[in-house]
Amino acid sequence: MVLIGTLGYHNLKDFSLGPILFPIMQEMDWPDEVEIDELNWGAVAIVQNFQARTEPYDRVVILSATPRDRPIGTLTYYHWQGGIPSLESIQDRISEAVTGVTSLDNLLVIGEYFDIWPTETLIVDVEPHPEQAGERLTDALQARIPEVLKAVEHAALADWSAIKPKEILEGKQFELYP
């Protein structure tokens, strides 16, 4: 089973890339083994849902727009390679998660701590325009949608041997913690 999960607050323009593309991806044709779901409902809840599954996911693809000081619109597609910060930092991230903060970094770290991520966990992450309120993407991000969807499709469907060793497109692993 493959999960494509979208992440991001609503109504924050580029930061809402995940929620904006979620219904579009639902309408696309996918093989039966691919599920599309939102991952906005809190990292702890997501961990618990993963833990409750009888059949673990073979692959997870997370789509997000997270600011990382890249040029706006930069698309990064990378393999989550694990690792966790200090226990104190994890504790702080759990405190944030249970009190309503939605964040890719917290989700990855908390998920890693509770060991929910399959080896084949891939992130498609786009650099958003600085935070603004609004329902639509900026033109810069709107123009990247075909590439974003292509990256998601590749991440979800490509043979693992074709993905694993490579940094795809402009991809690299980000340091989520010191």
Partner: peptide
Amino acid sequence: PCMPCTTHIM
């Protein structure tokens, strides 16, 4: 303490 989080205003 519960300080309202994710507060955004134009």
